[in-house]
Design a protein around this nucleic acid. Structure first.
Lengths: 191, 191
DNA sequence: GTCTATACACGGATAGAC
DNA sequence: GTCTATCCGTGTATAGAC
């Protein structure tokens, strides 16, 4: 792997573990096994390197999510698959955690990939909900955008609950709670 | 206000704005209008001062939440009141945001107030859901703990969505989505 | 109790040798 | 392209005067 690749990958790891403010160039260089010179040759500085790392992480997450949401099954099943997808819960969301980083939020360029990724997944879920309504799987009174936001929020908030308690259980509980509310009514099933 | 009070209050503000890693003693001192000596006289160091600040913030949030959840109205109405309660959405949750701080999570003492606060509110909502089930307001298949986790996660995740997009709208959308799923079925109302 | 002085490692970046 | 040297401000803490 090239030096600049190693720098980006190390930065991605550290941003996930410690956030932007908590990540120093020095720590990145040590993890990448590179010297100062390499970093400032390939990148303009910490924000520039972070931008490359964030873009890649955001892109990757988005692709994974969209793949699950466009997979097989009914709208409900796809949303369920998205919610139940395997996650490193205690590590948190590599994209969502950046929203708590003041320096990321303050920088338009750094925030953009975060915003776009979340918006894209949100939009995809909203579409699925609308499709589910047409199929009669979801109640017609539901709003796709709103349910999409609730689904995404449950995931992002689930990470918070899990990290607060030190256990992934809270994440799973929230997801199950949401799914129990969202579950399509099938004939003869009363909830 | 005493110097030690000003130190705690300044720390609370900064922890909310910039998190633990992003907050330096120097910044705290400047905001509090105090010198180095004062801080190290009243507190053992940054973690000790942060602990005092976090405890107070957690306590305050918990009291506010429990007040709303124990207020007037049916279980659904109280949960609704909690979800719709006025919030400084773009600033994020002063307690929840700490879960994304690696140094807070790594320190048992610092994490404890965060964990306890979230657990307490979670428990309170779970009770309300169970009560709502007894009253026939919620479907008997729902699980109090799970719905409680979903409610809390929607709030915590709502902050993430709002900060990502730079607008409180996403928070509100998620809340409305959850409420539309949770709304008790009243006679003649089909959703 | 509060202040100033001092300490030293780290954060973030530049310069220039190889 | 990569390395080392160097820079200056900041982060965190201690010492000691008032």
């Amino acid at each position: 792997m090239s030096t600049s690749e190693r720098l980006i990958e190390s930065t991605r790891e550290l941003l996930w573990e410690r956030g932007y403010v908590g990540t120093s160039p020095k720590a990145i260089l040590e993890r990448a096994g590179a010297g100062q010179g390499s970093m400032y040759h390939h990148f303009k500085g910490k924000p520039d390197l972070a931008l490359a790392a964030i873009r890649r992480t955001a892109q990757e997450l988005r692709a994974t999510a969209e793949q699950v949401l466009s997979g097989p099954g009914t709208p409900y099943e796809r949303i369920e698959a998205y919610l139940l997808r395997e996650r490193d819960v205690l590590r948190g969301c590599p994209v969502g955690r950046l929203t708590m980083d003041p320096d990321v939020i303050a920088n338009k360029d750094l925030r953009a990939p975060v915003d776009e990724t979340i918006a894209a997944i949100h939009g995809r879920i909203a579409e699925l909900v609308e499709e589910g309504k047409r199929l009669g799987q979801f109640a017609p009174g539901l709003d796709g955008e709103e349910i999409g936001a609730a689904v995404l929020a449950t995931v992002q908030g689930g990470y918070v609950l899990a990290r607060a308690s030190g256990s992934p259980a809270a994440f799973d509980a929230g997801v199950r709670g949401l799914l129990s509310l969202l579950a399509p009514r099938t004939p003869g099933q009363e909830r």
